[in-house]
Write a protein that binds this DNA or RNA. Sequence first.
DNA 1: TTACATTTAAATGTCTGACAATTTGGATGC
DNA 2: GCATCCAAATTGTCAGACATTTAAATGTAA
Lengths: 242, 242
Amino acid sequence: METVPAPKADLSAQIAKAIRDAIVEGRMIVDERLPSEAELAEQFNVSRPTVREALKRLAAQSLIRTQRGAFGGAFVRRLSYEEAYGQQITTSTLLLSMNAVSFEIACEARYAMERACTALAARRRSADHLATMRAEIHRQGQPGLSDESFCASDVAFHRAMVDAAGNPVLSYQLAGAVEAMQPLMNMITFTARSREAIVAFHTRIADAIEARDAAAAETALEELAAYTLELGRGVMAARAKR
Amino acid sequence: METVPAPKADLSAQIAKAIRDAIVEGRMIVDERLPSEAELAEQFNVSRPTVREALKRLAAQSLIRTQRGAFGGAFVRRLSYEEAYGQQITTSTLLLSMNAVSFEIACEARYAMERACTALAARRRSADHLATMRAEIHRQGQPGLSDESFCASDVAFHRAMVDAAGNPVLSYQLAGAVEAMQPLMNMITFTARSREAIVAFHTRIADAIEARDAAAAETALEELAAYTLELGRGVMAARAKR
DNA sequence: TTACATTTAAATGTCTGACAATTTGGATGC
DNA sequence: GCATCCAAATTGTCAGACATTTAAATGTAA
């Protein structure tokens, strides 16, 4: 946390970088307290508002948390899986919305990544995961479900499948990606018939995973991907004609 | 961008949230200029330093950029793939380092995700991607390469493979994940013999992708995953004994 | 001695006001 | 017509002050 003036940047950005480096490189450990704002100001030879701006930058990345009062201050924060993937979702969502990603590309990416989990899920799935999957399937069959709710349940189903793979890193990466793509998936309107078809695919997947049949699960997932893609293409074409 | 006071949070956090929502929900478009700090201060009924802290939070997430001088100000920023996945890398890296993820879990996740790309890569690979892969393979065969450089080249090889799949969303998600895991992969020390084995696997993968043989590529990748895992286990065991 | 209320000090949160630095656009002079 | 200079707008930085919150220290009573 020395005064290393990175060239050409705001002071607050330089200070934020210096502190961030200290954290990332492990020179500061979780829950360790940073010097007070006044002390940091003195160390870096800047004013307190400038230090505060730097700290806010770090807070925005969940790298620190601040606590008011005596013996309060800024503390290095342990990044939890939940927060990390919350951040990933917002970043990915923004990226997709700002860069006009097509439905095809998003759909392809989503199912390609999910495909990575089927083998592990078939091997490790617990009764709990299966129960969640079945529950979501049941929900998807209910009449009167809105398109958005159907979509949300779809995500929940796939998330249960991913979690069944029993690898937290995989869950983190995939759940974030899949959830970020939901707005794009939401563009589809589901007819009663297409819902029925999707539920059938989901049932096949759940059955295969229950039977620990990785190959069958993968096949079903691939067919679901193809079906979803076609469905999306149809919707896009209809929209283009209008 | 109204004054919607979210309960129980810093003023700067509330203001940041209000502006962020305006951007995410599309009420502000790319390159649009935000009101000046003084105007924002008046709108939200706070002082300028408070507004500034809010803006720094947004800047830390690459949501805005600021420009000094007349007709300068804060502008909504288009999030590029590069930045987004830069952010993803730092988040993932931090998450892994702070939460003590085992080598096994990280390795499994990495190869599972890469496996998602082989089929697409075999179908769409261009001469450029192949050339990059071959170049990295050649580099990995050079004697006197440090373990870290070998690892970096390994990442570059796999990244070329992922890019060959021709899906930017997939590249973004995977490259971020794979790169974040590099520190963990760096813990392995490679003997001359193990390097040779890995290069052989890489060659098999490149050959398969060149021949557009998805199944062969997948098999080779799976064997490489198993080999790497075993290698890692060996290193861990040796380290534990010491 | 223990339990509870009070004080106190340290820290962050916020405000005011000012000045510096930087950039743009127009006015001025030739 | 062109170069130069100046003024205005805006962010970047600083200094000092006060408000608010919180935990520890202190004091007090059962």
